[in-house]
Structures are given as C-alpha cells and as structure tokens.
C-alpha cells in the first residue's frame, strides 16, 4: 500500500480539469499503454498570453492522475515562459510529496507540459513529445538527455533513484551500467567502468550445435509455425548460425526482422551472447 498524501488522494478522488480542450493552443501527449501510464495535456491561451484553461486525460495509477490534475491547476494563469520553468519537483511539492518509486509520475507531468509548449511554439508541427538525444533505456524509451535532466533537477545519485524518476533501467536492466556512467558524468566524478562480466565457459562446437538445435526447436519453431513458416539449421560456423527459412517465412518481407529480432535474440539469450544469425540464401 502506497503512502499517499491527503492532497494526492484528493486529486485522485476528485480530479480537476478532466477532458480535452477543443481547438487547443497546446497539446502534449506522453507515455503509452505499454509503459503503464500516459498523459494527454491540452491548454488554451488567453488574450494576455497566459494559460487561460488547461485540461488533462490520464491512464495510470493514483499518483499519475493526481500529478496531472494538480499540474493543470498550477499552470493556469502562467505565461508560457513561466510554465516552461515548472519542474517535476514543483509538481511533487504541491502534492505534499510522492513516494520515491512514484516520482516518475511527476516527471510525466513536466514532460507533457513541455511537449504542449513545444507544440504551440512549433505552430502545431510537433504533435508528440520528441525524444531528444540517444535512447539509453530501450524498454521505456528514455534518452540520455532526459536521464541527465532528472539527475540534475532532482539531485539523484543512485541508479535506483533514476529508475524511480524516469523509469530508465526498470525493465530488463541492461542499461544500468550506462546510467551509472551518466550519473558519474553529471556529478563530475570519475567514470568507473564495471569489470566486464566473466566470460561464459566456452562451448564446444558440438555442444553449441546441440544447444542451437534445442533452442530453435523449443523457442523458435513453434512460433514460426503459428504463422505458417518454419526454420532449418544449416550450419554453425564459429559464432555464425546459418539457417534457412521455409514456408511463409521464406516469402515474408518481415523475415529479416524475424531473423535478427526474434531468432537471433533467442539464440543469444539461451546459447551464447555472441551469436549472429545468417540466412542461407540459395
């Protein structure tokens, strides 16, 4: 059970400014169903250039709904320059604080606001939140720029905190080393690179072929067959796994994607991380 403040509960139970403004000046959409939370923020400017009205729609938990609701109240009456200064910490503060693991809800609010301002300033060209910089966390689509920003604005020092604030590192965990390096860089500390993982025991070629066969049989073939396709192992040459696609897969234009994204990933997961899959083309 989360320890929500009474203000969070009030905004969750009685959300303010729900809806979408027709002919809005600013529209900001962030998050997705897959991420587990999403926010659509719209605002209308008054003749004085200040935000006259703001509305929201949110998919998410109580703190996501409360963060969005309180944000619409906060920005009403602000100029766009003022609104652009609102940080996620401001949103959390007005709510009387959020549980650490829920801070990403306040960040989502700030991102939506930023996107809505961008939308207005670009004359409606930027309709969705544009990812700036290189994507570090592929599970949640978080960029280096965004990670650096939450670290600075919230004075974060641990990878876990970064995950709480922007979700980066909270899926497969594969980018946690990189987040560590970004943290060190932002705080001007020497970047300590982790010792590489100890190498897996080398597989004999026979054992490798056997494992590849097993994984193809168990993980890959049933899925391809569902779509009327099939796969055949032709050869294993060092780290190159040579396969032939059969049935529908042989004709399918998505086959290249299937090979690397699906077959390759399975083999790297279950057999050895250095494998590449190559198609045997007659």
């Amino acid at each position: 059970m989360w320890d929500y403040t009474s203000k969070v509960m009030d905004h969750f139970r009685n959300p303010r400014n729900v809806g979408v403004i027709e002919n809005a000046d600013g529209i900001g959409e962030v998050g997705s169903l897959a991420c587990g939370d999403a926010l659509k923020l719209t605002f209308k400017l008054g003749p004085d250039g200040r935000i006259a009205d703001a509305k929201f729609q949110t998919f998410g938990c109580a703190s996501a709904i409360a963060s969005s609701s309180v944000l619409t109240e906060m920005i009403k009456g602000m100029t766009l320059d003022e609104a652009a200064q609102v940080t996620n910490q401001d949103i959390a503060d007005v709510l009387g604080g959020l549980p650490e693991q829920k801070m990403h809800c306040s960040v989502m609010g700030r991102e939506a606001l930023e996107a809505a301002i961008e939308y207005y300033r670009s004359g409606g060209k930027k309709t969705a939140h544009v990812l700036e910089g290189r994507v570090v966390c592929t599970c949640f689509g978080v960029t280096e720029t965004e990670i650096e920003r939450v670290i600075r604005e919230n004075n974060l020092h641990a990878v876990e905190e970064v995950t709480n604030y922007c979700k980066a590192g909270g899926g497969c965990g594969g980018c946690q080393h990189e987040i560590k390096a970004i943290l060190a860089r932002v705080h001007g500390e020497p970047v300590m690179l982790e010792a590489p993982e100890p190498p897996r025991p080398r597989l004999t070629t026979m054992r490798k072929i056997q494992l590849v066969q097993e994984v193809l049989e168990r993980e890959v073939r049933p899925r391809l067959q569902e779509d009327g396709g099939d796969i055949e192992l032709i050869d294993v040459d060092g780290n190159r796994v040579i396969v032939a696609l059969r049935g529908h897969c042989a004709m399918c234009r998505a086959a290249e994607f299937t090979l690397d994204g699906f077959v390759g990933a399975k083999l790297r997961e279950f057999v050895s991380p250095d494998l590449v899959v190559v198609e045997d083309k007659p």
Binding site: F12, R13, G36, D37, F59, G60, C61, A62, A64, I65, K102
Partner: peptide
C-alpha cells in the same frame, strides 16, 4: 483502458480488498 492500481484504490475506498497485476501495484 484503465490501470489496476487506480481500480484498487477506488475499491479500497469502498472497503473492498483485491489485488492487481499492474506494474504500479
């Protein structure tokens, strides 16, 4: 279209205890 924790919180307000497979919970 809606998220589990929010549903649980509304149920909780009625005294109903359940659980969710949502990420937030």
């Amino acid at each position: 279209f809606i998220e589990g924790e929010s549903i649980l919180m509304d149920l909780d307000a009625l005294g109903v205890c359940a659980s969710s497979g949502s990420a937030c919970t």
